[in-house]
Amino acid sequence: MRPAPDRGPGAAHPAPWLLPAVLVLAAFYAVPVLDVARLAVSDATLVRPASGFSTQALRAILTDPALPQVLGTTLLFVAVNVVALQLLGLLIALTIARGERRGLHGMAAFRTLVLAAWVVPGIANGLIWSMLFDEAPYGTLNSLLAYVGAGPVAWLSDPRMALVSAVIANLWQGTAFSMIVFYAARRGIDPTLYEVAALDGAGPWRVFTAITLPLLRRAIAVNTVLVSVQTLNTFDSILALTGGGPGRATEVLSLFTFNTVFYNLDLAGGAVLALLLFVIGMGMTLAVLAAGGRGEA
């Protein structure tokens, strides 16, 4: 142990202070992840313990014809959401920040509205949107569309449309997070940069591409990781909205994992999928952080 620097309050042994947090990290994160890896190569079910080493579950899952479709849906769902959530979040954050500088009214109210959607429980989000997407003639969106002579749209029964609907519901709830991150990052930019740009007569687009965007780069990199993983792990709103259907059209990896473990009670198979979920999540984190780190240097 390095001798503690002689700096008054800074001088103390951190171990006793860190102990509770470290124990929690070990017991609820590290050991479970290792246990999932162990279960993935066992023959355990939710009701029966493992009796030995087996790669049967691993093979069964990896050769499951549903897996490519599930992974494809997951990729599409995550990619579209990551782009759309951040574009929308950035647009809102910059517009609110501008509005506040100009002293416009209603900026705080709008921010509150977006945040209110954020705290809606995922299950309730799915149920609320399933009512909006109701395909009966009296369903909300379809009856609105009928007013303008359009529709009806098969929001949830058409496989392609169902995925679009799931993305819309996720955008409604998830935008607030990116909005906060970008709003905070925008406020962290030195205002004198903008004053100089204004003196130079730079237009709004030039200011955005030359100052705002480059200085938000780190925030965008970090946020991309957070939003990708959050979206990857989302399943309760989809469960309530479509249940993964029609067919498997909206069954993303996390929902597939949930169904495998807790409906089919296939623990070893679920552990394989959970491991896959973990590896993809960590992989995306490292990849984007590495790319972001290179960009900064």
């Binding site: 609820f28 479970p32 279960l39 990781v225 949930f258 959970a274 979920l277 999540g281 984190t285």
Partner: peptide, 13 residues
């Protein structure tokens, strides 16, 4: 970044 789904499989047991 770890999904509660990953953790819950062993935690349930």
């Amino acid at each position: 970044m770890i999904s509660p789904l990953v953790l819950l499989v062993p935690l349930y047991r």
